[in-house]
Nucleic acid binder design. Structure first.
Length: 546
RNA sequence: GUCCCUAUCGUCUAGCCUGGUCUAGGACACCAGAUUUUCAUUCUGGCAACAGGGGUUCGAAUCCCCUUAGGGAUGCCA
């Protein structure tokens, strides 16, 4: 027996099963990933399972590259999933089986070969667990007594009770009950059997009423579901049209595939972006038409870009792989994205994966959209970068250095390790390493005029004189090691009676061209004695006092 | 057009369900000070918000209504 025809949602003992179901029609972006993270967090928090389904039925736009990128993003972020990933295209037989079932039980209909198959939204699908009793009222009016209503002409004139405007809208006659005819003179007539008469046959309402009806008033039912994030959502049933479930070319649409696969994968909690809310109202009826109890739903707000607009796959920056490429740490991205629209409820912001897993609940997810803040991501990344084990940080920065074309020849591992530690608290992302440390790899840099003026030329070239005096002293340092160098500089400053600033800064400019670098001992050590002497000579040759 | 949703510092948010403890808390960014030979780190302090208007109440960020602004839906896309 196919899994399709078993119903698992009834079973309270079933562990929670969530899923991430991307359509691989473009690079997976941070919005998608955040949905995946929330699904993963929710499943793991509840000791449930997290499944993957690749919704690749859009053959035109789905690509193997996109699928591959999606999986590598999941792996990078440590979003482990249970079981094998499902590919929607492979489920086609199940989808067709489901359609056949709906055709047989009368919930779907078609006008024939080459025509689409529609799901009929009708009273037979009303289930008290997601459709309310009739309530409130819907007033339908028409002018000049010309309306002829049947299933095919469901578009007609309606007056909005709010604005008083008259507009054209589709109304599903089947879903409205207890009609009352309101005549031209305002009197009301019960017409309880109207709905029964409005079947497949064309009915001339005007004829039915003797040409005196001004409007008809109905009671109205609402489809509803209790959203785990947003609370109860509802929508008038009559605002839903019969929906296409099989295209005229015979292919099942997304709605069928999505619902059937969720049944097949025994998903208990569907957690997705709030752009699916409208779909959820319709999917409820598909579950019912198939004889299944719908799962729980939760809809997350969208994540918007710096200009406040929703991210789309066209937003190049939003591709998750780009963040990986830029050297952002997966833990930082995970943490940051989890905090977009969710918080643990206390003041914690940097949370380990276990802490997030522990604290995550859907009711703490926000209802409103979160804007992506690059600066905060960088800060978050820095938080993780500082705590990174030495070997990891070294590997990360070495890769970055190679990418930037830095010359690592003749640089020992020990040398590189020391360099990395000097950078640990100076960078928030690997790219910062390139801008911070290039002078350790190349002597090809400009001497910043402002720095030269302030630290070399000021006071009759005090800095320059110090530099000249330092040269033989430096040449004489036997133990070329950071602390020894620094001690020697301190001694020099003390003995010659100059401020340490007028010793260190000229050297810094000679080494880096600018006034910013790690501690002077480290800087000189890393540049190397011979290279340092060359760089001092360069300054002495290039810079002259007036 | 219509339907649906959302609304606290520039940004991410706590507080809202269960009104008073909120002169609205934290974080990023920004500004100032301390530490540091420079820069960074760290520490201290500062700036900065309940979208607007009504209502309910002794009392409203919190409950209700309206307006405004954003977003989503309205596909034989997913």
């Amino acid at each position: 027996m196919s899994t399709l025809f078993r119903n698992h949602f009834q079973n309270q003992e079933t562990p929670m099963r969530t899923r991430f179901a991307p359509s691989p029609t473009g690079n997976v972006h941070i919005g998608n990933i955040r949905v995946a993270i929330f699904n993963w967090l929710c499943a793991r928090h509840n000791n449930g399972e997290f499944l993957i389904r690749v919704e690749d039925t859009d053959l035109e736009r789905s690509t193997p590259e996109a699928i591959q990128k999606m999986f590598s993003a999941l792996e990078w972020l440590g979003l482990d999933y249970d079981g094998e990933a499902m590919y929607q295209t492979a489920q086609r037989p199940e989808h067709e089986k489901a359609v056949k079932k709906m055709l047989e039980n009368g919930h779907a209909f078609t006008k024939g070969e080459g025509e689409p198959v529609l799901l009929r939204i009708h009273a037979g699908l009303f289930d008290e667990s997601f459709v309310t009793e009739p309530r409130d009222e819907a007033t339908i009016i028409w002018k000049n007594g010309e309306l002829v209503a049947n299933r095919e002409t469901i578009t007609h004139t309606v007056t909005s009770p709010k604005s008083g405007e008259t507009y054209i809208t589709p109304v599903n006659w089947d879903t409205l009950t207890d009609p009352v005819f309101i005549l031209d003179d305002g009197t009301e007539l019960e017409a309880t059997n109207l709905r029964n008469q409005l079947g497949e046959q064309e009915i001339d309402l005007n004829a039915l009423s003797g040409g005196t009806i001004a409007s008809v008033r109905f009671k109205r039912r609402y489809v509803y579901f209790d959203d785990l994030v947003l609370g109860r959502r509802e929508k008038p049933v009559d605002s839903l049209r019969d929906m296409v479930i099989v295209r005229s070319d015979g292919s099942p649409v997304f709605h069928i595939a999505n619902v059937v696969d969720d049944v097949t994968q025994e998903i208990t909690h569907i957690l997705r972006g709030n752009d699916h809310i409208e779909n959820t109202f319709r999917h409820l009826f598909i579950f019912k038409a198939l004889g299944f109890t719908p799962p729980q739903y939760g809809h997350f707000p969208m994540i918007v870009n710096a200009s406040g607009k929703p991210y789309s796959k066209r937003d190049g920056d939003a591709y998750i792989g780009d963040f990986q490429e830029k050297g952002f740490l997966p833990e930082a991205i995970f943490n940051f994205l989890a905090l977009c629209g969710w918080s643990p409820g206390d003041d914690r912001e940097v949370l380990s994966r276990d802490e997030m897993k522990e604290a995550f609940t859907l009711e703490r997810v926000n209802a409103s959209a979160a804007q992506f803040d690059m600066q905060k991501l960088e800060w978050m990344n820095q938080q993780y970068m500082v705590k990174l084990p030495a070997d990891k940080l070294e590997a990360l920065l070495k890769a970055e250095a190679q990418k930037a074309g830095f010359d690592l020849n003749g640089k020992s591992d020990e040398w590189f390790s020391i360099l990395v530690e000097t950078q640990r608290e100076r960078i928030s992302k690997p790219a910062d390493f390139i801008t911070n440390a290039s002078y350790f790899f190349s002597s090809d840099f400009e001497l910043q005029p402002k720095a030269v003026k302030k630290n070399l030329l000021k006071n009759d070239g005090e800095g320059l004189k110090n530099l000249a005096a330092l040269k033989p002293m430096i040449a004489g340092i036997a133990d070329w090691e950071s602390q020894a160098i620094e001690a020697a500089l301190n001694k020099f400053a003390e003995e010659s009676g100059v401020m340490m600033g007028m010793v260190a800064q000229p050297l810094r400019i000679a080494c880096t061209g600018a006034t910013v670098s790690p501690g002077i001992g480290d800087t000189l050590y890393l540049v190397g004695k011979d290279e340092l002497l060359k760089r001092i000579d360069r300054v002495l040759n290039e810079i002259k006092t007036e």
